[in-house]
Amino acid sequence: MDEKEEVAASDHIGDVCEGLMDTLESVAHGKGETLTGLGTGFEDLDYLTRGLEPGTLTVVASRPAMGRTTFLSDICRHNAIKNNIPTLVFTLEENRQSFTRRVVAAEARVPIHHMRAGTMTDEDWTRLGRRLPVVLESPLFIRDTARVDMRLIQLETATMMEKRDVRLVCIDGVQDIRPEKRSDLREREVGDVVRDLKTMARELDIPVVVTSHLNRSPEYRPDKIPRLDDLRESGAITFASDTLIMLHREDAYEKESPRAGEADLIVAKHRHGPAATVMVAHQGHYGRFVDMAQP
């Protein structure tokens, strides 16, 4: 068989179907519980999406102070610390010290404001001492370059995949990535970046998770609930993403809300399944979200 025939055979639908049947049998054997991608750490969200699949782009969007960076760090913790999966995170909205403090506080269940103010209690130190060794040994790699463009992200990701076997890339702040080609239209620049991220995910066959801002539109609605057309600066985010999750908390607007301590993960777009809303608990003092039943 010559080279052309080998290429044609590898692309034949029969070969693809064999892989599909293996996946279907695996899911059926697991009675619907088997993930087809990496977990997020949130049971209901993983049940809905089947996890973060290789080659996909997941966007987490919200208004400021809703907790999108916290949610992203939760995904990183679940994979790198709990499951020992090499994870690369580009933190473009804060430095690596701040992101690391966020991760450690959430993992050790130490109030993050205690760490910032230097007022940690004896119990805080005990909890920190118990979990810190686990954090230190985890394959979580943090990049906080102030001025980053797509070429650098692609190069760094490819390098870390080769050297550290990275299997998940998380980026906090898609609007902070500079495109390879500058434009007078900001919307076009963001659109180019998002499309490049999706291409990177497919070419490297890994899941990519990014955070994005929403515009002010939700604040002018009575219920404050975000919608797809609230994505700031670029509708291309909607089209390029495989999964788009909007983070919303009622108590961010109304402190005395009966839903204080709760958050909605609004899966507004899901290329491979239904859209739905997943409710989780917000433990703001620890800087983390958890499943509702989790202590």
Rank of each mutant, 00 (worst) to 15 (best):
D46Q: 10
T40H: 03
A252T: 12
I266H: 04
A65Q: 10
P54W: 01
T91H: 06
L247C: 00
C170K: 02
V210K: 04
L20E: 04
H114S: 09
F289C: 09
E189N: 07
E18R: 14
L231G: 03
A105C: 02
T157A: 08
P258S: 09
K31Y: 07
T49I: 09
R167C: 09
V174Y: 07
V278Y: 06
R195D: 13
A117E: 15
M1R: 03
A105T: 05
T40S: 02
E43I: 15
Y220I: 11
V278T: 05
P207V: 00
D124W: 05
R130V: 15
V174A: 14
E43D: 07
D223S: 13
P274L: 08
E123T: 15
N83C: 07
G191A: 14
T87D: 00
E187Y: 02
R68I: 11
G191P: 15
H78V: 04
P226L: 03
A268N: 04
M1D: 10
P133S: 07
I85Q: 11
R147H: 13
E254V: 13
W125C: 06
I177S: 07
R182A: 14
G284C: 00
T36L: 03
E254S: 09
L132D: 05
S138P: 04
A252D: 11
D122K: 12
M120A: 13
F141Y: 12
T49C: 01
L204M: 05
R288D: 09
A236V: 03
N83D: 11
M161V: 10
V190Y: 06
S73M: 12
D124E: 01
M120K: 03
N84T: 11
D264G: 14
R164Q: 13
H12T: 11
M160S: 14
H285T: 11
N83H: 12
M150F: 09
P207F: 00
D176L: 15
A146M: 14
L57N: 03
E156P: 12
S212Y: 10
T126S: 15
I112L: 09
A260N: 05
I245A: 01
I266A: 09
Y253R: 07
R50M: 13
V169Y: 00
R195V: 14
T277C: 04
Q283H: 12
R96A: 10
A61Q: 10
V110L: 09
C76V: 08
G173W: 03
E189H: 08
T100W: 02
K31Q: 14
D291M: 04
L35H: 04
S62C: 06
P258H: 04
L57P: 01
I266K: 12
P218M: 10
R127Q: 08
Q294C: 13
H78R: 11
R109D: 11
R271D: 12
R116V: 14
R178L: 04
D2T: 04
P218T: 15
A105P: 03
P111N: 06
I225Q: 05
S10E: 15
E203K: 15
D291F: 02
D122F: 01
L20P: 06
D291I: 05
D2K: 07
H285S: 07
E250T: 05
T211A: 04
A8F: 11
E33A: 14
E123D: 15
E254R: 02
G19Y: 11
E262K: 14
R221I: 10
E53V: 12
L20T: 09
G39T: 07
D2Q: 04
L20Q: 08
M120W: 12
